[in-house]
Nucleic acid binder design. Structure first.
Lengths: 239, 239
DNA sequence: ATCTTATTTTGATTAAAATCAAAAACTGTA
DNA sequence: TACAGTTTTTGATTTTAATCAAAATAAGAT
């Protein structure tokens, strides 16, 4: 799995190296361990739609997205897809698999657009953890955060409706970047829909409602948040 | 929080001690560390409905249920409750909180029936982890399992319907115990409903359907699985 | 450009489950 | 046993979002 599109050894640009050095996954390691991990790491270059790994398959790597974005998703027998999360540059994924029975991952990962992913050797990674409880604590913190996120997600799915989930998603996405109130959707809307567990038609209608209420405006593939306070109010009152 | 109903120091029956010794949470520790954890542990005796801790409050303990059962649940501003999971004797909970920002737990815990819970000192626990990477690995394995369970739960909530969730729940509950096909619900049905994210009325109707189909029978607060193969078939075909 | 394809929106309809309301079945207690 | 309370079931109705179907829009290729 995931071996066809690999370049090794890794030659990384400096800004990528410093991105990685700051990753919560790696920052607790010594410089030496960090270098050794990089030496053994592989770059996966994926075309849009290309799979990185499939559910049920054991993984020998822990991943960090370097460019593009990766969807992590479940698939039912009938072919229905549910996107659990979307990893963007700097974000790690499949780190919990390293401690799972048989290292089997229960999810699929595929590129939503042309992407580069770095895969660290899981055995080597575990080896370094064995020598360093402080690194273990760093990883345990990461796993704890992951659990917290999933608990909140269950919360949103069970106690809140589709509109709430979309508004929450918009405000979350809005948190990170460059102050301006414009969110660029760099993936098709049906991807956002799957991420939010609604049908594309429903997402379209909800966006229309919010537009009609004067809370957002839509143009191209960008959503401008007109009334952030109003959106925030929707999260506390309704849902 | 959680200090009113505490007996300390702990005096435990032998079978409880051996239950604890086998807990995935504790088994990686040395006998000495295990004893020291027990020395600092507190027993919480809870009446039915009594809270163990509330969301938003920092926790200084990691818990294992000794008797009775504990519901772990979210609560919305409007007072709607969603039970995430139910801990029965031997099961640990709130172990991830120990690595969270400010040790803040985002869930509530309360007794579903008269219960005893042992709370280990989280600081001491972390201290022992610092001395032992192998214990860390044990905990990371536990956290990884927790993540896996939550991912599956998201899966069931988004890709499957209420009937699927109930049938899955019945078969999961059936896995553990003493071969016989009778599941005793030792909690009110509305608790099961909340756990499955359906309304009590809906649960009642689904149980009726399954009964009409000859898959189960209901009497008292027991569900007898008549056609286990038929139930399993429902998980693969429909959902 | 034009044609082709994929994505998104809109409208009409359906389905699953929630809600509302009330009856029935239990529980425990006096 | 009768009574007061809770829990569960049943029935009628509504709501939310899914589904089905088709039009509109956007994106790519020739």
């Amino acid at each position: 799995m995931a071996s066809e599109h690999v370049d090794v050894p890794v030659k990384l640009k400096n800004h990528i190296v410093s991105l990685l050095r700051q990753s919560p996954l790696l920052q607790a390691f010594s410089s030496e361990q960090f270098s050794l991990l990089l030496e053994q790491a592989r770059i996966h270059r994926l075309q849009e739609g290309e799979m990185l790994f499939r559910q049920g398959v054991p993984l020998q790597e822990i991943f960090i997205c370097l460019s593009g974005c990766i969807k992590l998703f479940h698939m039912t027998a009938e072919g229905h897809e549910k996107i659990i999360s979307i990893a963007s540059p700097g974000q790690n994924f499949a780190e919990a698999v390293m401690f799972a029975e048989g290292n089997v991952c229960h999810m699929n990962a595929a590129a939503l657009k042309q992407a580069e992913v770095i895969g660290f050797n899981a055995g080597q990674f575990r080896g370094f953890l064995e020598t360093s409880p402080s690194s273990c604590f760093s990883v345990m913190g990461l796993l704890s955060q992951h659990i917290q996120w999933l608990l909140d997600e269950v919360d949103r799915l069970t106690l809140h409706n589709a509109t709430f989930r979309l508004v929450y998603f918009l405000l979350e996405t809005h948190k990170h970047p460059n102050y301006c109130n414009i969110i660029s959707l760099d993936v098709p809307k049906h991807v956002i829909a799957s991420r939010l567990s609604v049908r594309p038609e429903t997402l379209s209608r909800i966006l229309k409602n919010l537009t009609d209420q004067g809370l957002i405006t839509l143009r191209d593939h960008k959503i401008e948040l007109i009334d952030v306070a109003g959106l925030k109010a929707m999260l506390s009152t309704e849902g």
